[in-house]
Design a binder for these strands. Sequence first.
DNA 1: ATATTTTTTGAATATTTTTTCATTTTAACC
DNA 2: GGTTAAAATGAAAAAATATTCAAAAAATAT
Lengths: 226, 226
Amino acid sequence: MDALKILVVDDESRMRKLVKDFLTKKNFQVLEAGDGEEAMDIFYKEKDIALIILDVMMPKMDGWQVCREIRKNSKVPIIMLTARGDERDELLGFDLGVDEYISKPFSPKILVARVEAILRRTGQDMAQDMLSAGGIVIDKAAHLATVDGKPMELSFKEFELLTYFLENEGIALSREKILNSVWNYDYFGDARTIDTHVKKLRSKMGEKGEYIKTVWGMGYKFEVES
Amino acid sequence: MDALKILVVDDESRMRKLVKDFLTKKNFQVLEAGDGEEAMDIFYKEKDIALIILDVMMPKMDGWQVCREIRKNSKVPIIMLTARGDERDELLGFDLGVDEYISKPFSPKILVARVEAILRRTGQDMAQDMLSAGGIVIDKAAHLATVDGKPMELSFKEFELLTYFLENEGIALSREKILNSVWNYDYFGDARTIDTHVKKLRSKMGEKGEYIKTVWGMGYKFEVES
DNA sequence: ATATTTTTTGAATATTTTTTCATTTTAACC
DNA sequence: GGTTAAAATGAAAAAATATTCAAAAAATAT
C-alpha cells in the first residue's frame, strides 16, 4: 500500500518541517512548497495528491488565491492554517470549499488527527476496503460483514475465510490453497478444519450460505447464483 | 457542558430536518417550530436559546414579525433565510437587528459555518473541538467527556483513549494501532494495558460501555447500537 | 518529602475460537 | 442399487484470547 501524498504549503520552512515530521511519522509522504506558485507547480506535476495543507499568509500568492486556483480543477481536500480567531477568513474559506481550519498555533497532534479524519471522510484512506457480492458486504476497515444489511457475528477466522472467498469469487479453491492463504503457510493441521469453518459460515449466512459451493474432490467455490 | 440550543423556524418540515441534521452532527441541540407563533412559544418557554434560524416566508406570522417580536425582549442572534437576491429584505432586516443572511438555496456547510462564526463572535462559542456519538460527547478543549449530559470522571489516558475511539467510530482498531496512536509510537509496554483501560472506560460509561466492542483476535471497535 | 492518583504489570479466571475426531450423510462411479 | 470416497455434522477437547483483579511502579499533587 502506497503512502498518501500530502502537500504542505507554507513560507516558513520551520513550520513545514514541523508538519512534515509528524506526518511522516504517520506514514504519509510529504511534499513541500514555499509559496503559492511552487504549490501550483507541484500540484499539477504530481497527479495524486491526497490532501493539501495551506497557510493563509504567504507572500506573492496567498492561501486564498491558491485555494481558488486549485478548486477550479480539483476537489482535493484542503486544510487552511489561519491566525487565531479570524472568523472572517473562515466564512470566506467555506465558500471557497475549504474542508477544515486549524488556527495557529496548533498542536501537531491535532493536525494529524484532522488530516486522518478528513481522509477517512473523503474515503481516500485505506483504499475503501469494501467487497461485495450477492448481498454480502465486507467492510474490512470495520472488520464487519453483513448479509442484506444485517451484520453477521463472525469469528476472526470466519471473517478471513469469507473475505478470501469474496476476493476469489467464481474461482474454485482447493483446501490446500485456502490453508495457505487464510491460515499461515506453515500451518499443518487437518485440512478438515476448513470444512468445519465452512459449515459455520454457511449457517451464519442463512440461505445465502449456498453461495459457498462444494467442488467435489477439490475444495470450495464462492459463487452467486447461476 | 450542555449543548447550545438553536431554534429553527420554517414551515417546511423537510427544510427543518435538513438543518437539524447538520447542526445535530455538530453537537447543537435543535428545537423546531413550524410557524411564527410556535416559535414565540418555544422561545419564551425555553430560557436559553443561543441562536435562531428564521425563514422569512411563512404563513400566518412571517419572519419579520417574529424577528420584531423577539427583538422587543432579546438580543439573541438571528439568522434569516431569504429567497435569493432580495436586497430589499436585507435592508429591512438589518434595521430589525438581524445578524446574518443566508439565501436559499444554501449549502448546509455554509449554514453551519455561519452559525459557528456568530456564536463565536457573540462569545457563546465553545463549539470548537467537539466529538459525539450515541449520547457520548467529548469536549477536547475542556478535556471533558459526558454520557447523556453527565460528566464522566476520566483519567488522562482514559480520556485520550475514548477520544481516539470516537474519532474512529465504526472502525476496528488493533491493539497495536491503539498503542501507536494513544500512547507514544515508541511505547513498548504490554498490550494488555489497553485491556485494563478499556475495562475502566466501559465501567465508567455505564450501559453505554457496550459501545466499545471487542473484536476478537484483533482489538476493539467503537460502535453505537446494532 | 509524603500522600494521592494514575498507569502499568502479571497472574488467575473466564470466555471464545479453533481444531480434532467419530459419525452420518452425500455424491460419483461401477 | 451397491460400493467407495469425500464432505457435512455435531460434540467435545485443545488452544488462543480477553477480562478481571490486585498489587507494583510511576507520575502528580499536597
